[in-house]
Structure formats: structure tokens, C-alpha cells
């Protein structure tokens, strides 16, 4: 059937390989998946060899099988699942608080020059403060309860996110806004019915990336000041030099991150079919 072959569905494997190695060549879903899995397999094989050849002692680097086995066991251990749940709740709670503040403020920053001029310099300054350095201060202010964890995550994401949102809003074509005016819309209506839908695809991408950062900060916060959560679990296993447990904990964080990221990507594709 001429003209029906989709891009990236090359007819021969040679052609498919050609497309993969070409500069900015077309990519196909299946080829990408195969390559992704191949990289994982290679990674584990190298890891295995390093332990097998005794390059690193098992005490510091257990076999991949041991770590995966430990992880499987952890995933049916109630206390660990509880830690996972607590971390997930902290991440999402703080993330949503961050989004709820950053979206309107970011849009105002781009819509009103006075808001941008007032807010941008201070936001720019705060976002360069290293979050770990803020942890002691935030503990002094908020204690070691949930509030301090949420505060750490919020500090670590809000100031980045608000600038990303402001940028997204600024980038929508001027003619879109002017079209709104000439169709009789008021500024608030333009924001709601033109600016927001227009920036939504890039905004969702930025939210996805920001959510990933939350997982960095939650582990930092839980290591320093918590008696629950995955970070706390990893840290307490370290004390007994239980390397498999430490690595399994890290792995779980990675897997949660990966799954969330993929879920948001799929949602993005469904939500923005028109792109």
C-alpha cells in the first residue's frame, strides 16, 4: 500500500537501523523500547561482573539478584510499604501546594509587568539557595513534624516552578491574546480561556519534571529529620551496613519516579492529542 507506511515503521530491519543511527532520524516506539531494555540488561550484566570478579567486595556491592530479592521482600513488608506510602503522600502533598501557588503567580508574573518586576528578582535569588542548607533552618521553624518536610519540598520546587510557569505563559503568541481582546474577552477571560489552554501542554511537562525533583528533596529531608519514610528507612539500614536493603530502598525510589513519569507522559499524549 503506497503512502500508508507510517514514519518509523520502516519496512526492513536495515532501514530501521539506518533511521536509528541517522542524525535526528525518525524513531519508532518498538525500537526505542528494545534499546531501553538492552541498556538495562547491559547495566545489570556489568554490575554482576564487577561483583563476580571480586573487583568490589560483596559487603559493599551485593549481587544484583540479592538486591532485587531484598526489594521483592520489602514490597510485601508492611512497615516498608508504610514508609513508601508516607513518602509518596509527602511528595504529592508538597508538590500540589507548590503547583497551587506557582500557577497563578507565574501567570500573573507574565501578565502584569509590575508583578513580574516585583517577584522575579527575589524568586531568582531564593532559587539559588541550596535546599539542603535550608533544612536546618526549616527544622528550627517547623519542628521535625510533617510541616518541615513539606516546607523543604515546597522551597525546593516552588521557586523553580513559578519561573517555568511564567516562561510558559510568556511564550504564547501575542496574537492569541489580541484575538481574545478583539472577540470581546476581558483579561481574566483571556487568562482562563486562551492563556491557560494554550500553555497547558508545556506546563504539564514542567510539572512532571518538577515532581521528579521532589523525590530528591524528600530523601534529603527524611534522612536529616524523620522517623518514617523511604529516606529514613535507607538511612537506618546504613547504620547496620545492610547494603542490599539500602540499595533496594534506592531502587524503589527510582521505580516510583519512573512509573510516575511514564504515567504523566501517557496522560500528556492522551490529553493533548491535537498536538
Amino acid at each position: 500500500m503506497p503512502g500508508t507506511a507510517g514514519r518509523g515503521r520502516a519496512s526492513g530491519s536495515g532501514q530501521a537501523l539506518g533511521a536509528l543511527v541517522a542524525y535526528r532520524g525518525a524513531t519508532g516506539g518498538r525500537a526505542n523500547l528494545t534499546l531501553g531494555i538492552a541498556a538495562f540488561v547491559l547495566f545489570i550484566a556489568v554490575w554482576y561482573l564487577i561483583v563476580f570478579t571480586g573487583l568490589v567486595t560483596e559487603r559493599f556491592l551485593p549481587y544484583p539478584g540479592v538486591v532485587i530479592g531484598t526489594m521483592a521482600q520489602l514490597l510485601v513488608t508492611e512497615s516498608f510499604l508504610n514508609d513508601v506510602w508516607i513518602s509518596v503522600a509527602r511528595v504529592w502533598g508538597a508538590f500540589l501546594l507548590s503547583v497551587v501557588a506557582a500557577v497563578p503567580i507565574g501567570i500573573w508574573m507574565s501578565s502584569y509587568r509590575i508583578v513580574g518586576a516585583l517577584v522575579e528578582p527575589i524568586v531568582d535569588f531564593i532559587r539559588y539557595l541550596p535546599v539542603p542548607a535550608l533544612v536546618p533552618l526549616l527544622i528550627i521553624w517547623f519542628g521535625i513534624g510533617e510541616a518541615s518536610k513539606v516546607a523543604v519540598l515546597w522551597m525546593g520546587t516552588f521557586f523553580q516552578l513559578v519561573l517555568l510557569i511564567a516562561d510558559d505563559a510568556k511564550r504564547i503568541p501575542r496574537e492569541f491574546v489580541e484575538t481574545g481582546y478583539t472577540l470581546g474577552a476581558k483579561p481574566r477571560q483571556i487568562t482562563r480561556s486562551i492563556v491557560l489552554p494554550s500553555m497547558l501542554p508545556t506546563m504539564v511537562d514542567n510539572l512532571r519534571i518538577t515532581l521528579g525533583w521532589c523525590w530528591t528533596w524528600i530523601i534529603v529531608a527524611e534522612i536529616v529529620a524523620a522517623n518514617s519514610g523511604i529516606g529514613h528507612y535507607i538511612w537506618s539500614m546504613r547504620r547496620f551496613l545492610k547494603t542490599p536493603e539500602v540499595m533496594a530502598g534506592i531502587l524503589v525510589v527510582g521505580i516510583i519516579g519512573l512509573l510516575t513519569d511514564q504515567a504523566v507522559r501517557i496522560a500528556h499524549r492522551r490529553l493533548f492529542r491535537y498536538l
Binding site: E175, T182, L183, S198, Y274
Partner: peptide
Amino acid sequence: TGPDRRKGMVFQAYTSFPW
């Protein structure tokens, strides 16, 4: 004094909304 619905405008750039 300003833009409103009485003055309809069609731009050279495409302004139909993609969503």
C-alpha cells in the same frame, strides 16, 4: 480607545486555537 468585539481582527500569523 482600546480593542473590543466591534473591531474584528484577522492576523497574518495563524491564530486559530490548536486545542
